[in-house]
C-alpha cells in the first residue's frame, strides 16, 4: 500500500518537474483566471470595505449583513446563478461567456468580492481613527488618506487578499458549472483534481494538489513573517 503511494508521489513529482504540458496548462488556467478575478475586484472591494467602516448611512447594517451572508453562500449556488445569467436565454447570454474563462472570472469575482469586502471592512473598523484624522489634517486628499490607512493596515489587508485568493483558487462548484472543465480552456486545478480522481488517475490529481499545498505553505510562511514584523504598536 505504502509503496503504491510512494510510486504515485514520485509520478506526481515527475509530472510537475518534467513540465508536463497538460498539468501546467491546468495550473496556468487556474492562476490566470483567479488572478484576473482578484485583480478586478481588489480595489472596488477594499474601497467598499473602507466606505462601510468609515461612514454611517441608513441601512448600513443591512449591507454589512448581506455581504457577510454572500460570503457563506456555497460556490455551487453562485455557479448556478452565474450559469443562469450566462446561459443563452439568460440576462447576460449575449456575452457568450458560458464555458469560457471570462465566465469563470465573472463567477470567481462574485465569490471573491464578499470575502474581500467583509475582511477589509473589519480591518478598517479596527484601525485607529487618528491615522485618518492625522493624514487629512496634514493636508492629504481623501485618496491619499485612504492609501495611508491601507498602508497602516497592510498586514490585515494582505491577509484579506490571501483569504479571498485561496477561496477562489480552490473552489470547484462555480468553475465546474460555468467553465465546463474543458481541457486547455477552462480546466483548472480543483476541477481537474475532481475529474482525475473520479477517473482513478491519482498521479495527476496529487501533482495538482501538491501545487495548492506548496502555494498554501509559501503564503502562510510569508504572512507569518509579515505578522512577526508588524509588532504591536504603542500610541
Amino acid at each position: 500500500m505504502s509503496e503504491g503511494w510512494l510510486a504515485l508521489l514520485q509520478q506526481a513529482f515527475r509530472l510537475l518537474l518534467s513540465f508536463d504540458p497538460d498539468v501546467w496548462s491546468i495550473i496556468n488556467v487556474s492562476f490566470s483566471v483567479s488572478f484576473a478575478a482578484l485583480f478586478i475586484t481588489l480595489i472596488p472591494s477594499i474601497m467598499l470595505g473602507f466606505f462601510l467602516a468609515f461612514t454611517h448611512f441608513p441601512g448600513r447594517w443591512i449591507v454589512t449583513n448581506l455581504i457577510q451572508t454572500l460570503q457563506s453562500i456555497p460556490t455551487v449556488v453562485i455557479g448556478l446563478l452565474v450559469y443562469l445569467l450566462l446561459t443563452r436565454n439568460g440576462a447576460m447570454g449575449d456575452l457568450k461567456w458560458l464555458f469560457s474563462q471570462n465566465g469563470m472570472i465573472f463567477g470567481q469575482m462574485l465569490i471573491c468580492a464578499p470575502v474581500l469586502v467583509a475582511l477589509s471592512q473589519a480591518a478598517f473598523a479596527s484601525v485607529d481613527r487618528r491615522a485618518w484624522e492625522t493624514s487629512r489634517t496634514l493636508g492629504a486628499n481623501w485618496l491619499m488618506a485612504i492609501w495611508t490607512v491601507c498602508r497602516e493596515l497592510r498586514v490585515a489587508l494582505l491577509l484579506a487578499i490571501v483569504a479571498a485568493f485561496s477561496r477562489i483558487l480552490t473552489e470547484v462548484g462555480c468553475s465546474m458549472m460555468v467553465g465546463g472543465n474543458i481541457m486547455n480552456v477552462t480546466r483548472n486545478i480543483p476541477t481537474a483534481i475532481a475529474l482525475e480522481t473520479s477517473k482513478g488517475d491519482f498521479a495527476q490529481a496529487i501533482a495538482l494538489g501538491l501545487v495548492l499545498l506548496i502555494l498554501a505553505l509559501v503564503l502562510n510562511f510569508a504572512l507569518g513573517s509579515l505578522r512577526g514584523k508588524a509588532l504591536p504598536r504603542s500610541h
Binding site: D128, R130, A131, T134, T148, R151, E152, A230, R233, H235
Partner: peptide, 9 residues
C-alpha cells in the same frame, strides 16, 4: 494635533 499624537508606521 491630537493630545496623544498618531505616528504612522
Amino acid at each position: 494635533l491630537h493630545q496623544h499624537p498618531y505616528l504612522f508606521d
